[in-house]
């Protein structure tokens, strides 16, 4: 039985960059719990020596040749942006340096 706390929901919301109001945390915690209960059965399956499958079709070495192709037409890249300045995407101030 899993039990997700409000704090965990808040942490997940931060990792996922989704603003969740304090009064909604409980609600989400309950829903996530319900879903996790439903999927918890995966832990009962014996998977010793079973390899994990990340790709459904087994292929390897799929490469592209190093030959340039046309980029988007000037302006097309910026056309859908919420805010643009000086041919660049304008974003609110960045708090922490990378």
């Amino acid at each position: 039985m899993t039990a997700i706390s409000r704090e965990e929901v808040a942490h997940l919301a931060h990792l996922a960059r989704i603003n969740i109001a304090d009064d909604q945390l409980e609600h989400f915690a309950k829903q996530l719990d319900a879903i996790l209960d439903a999927v918890a059965q995966v832990s009962q399956v014996d998977t010793a020596d079973v390899p994990a499958m990340s790709h459904p079709i087994p292929m390897t070495n799929v490469f592209r040749e190093d030959i340039p192709v046309a980029s988007l037409a000037p302006g097309a890249a910026l056309a859908g942006a919420p805010a643009v300045e000086d041919s660049r995407f304008r974003v609110p101030r960045i708090l922490d340096e990378e």
Partner: peptide
């Protein structure tokens, strides 16, 4: 969770 699910995926295949 994720790792175990990917193994079950193999079992289903």
């Amino acid at each position: 969770y994720y790792g175990q699910a990917q193994k079950i995926r193999t079992l289903i295949a």
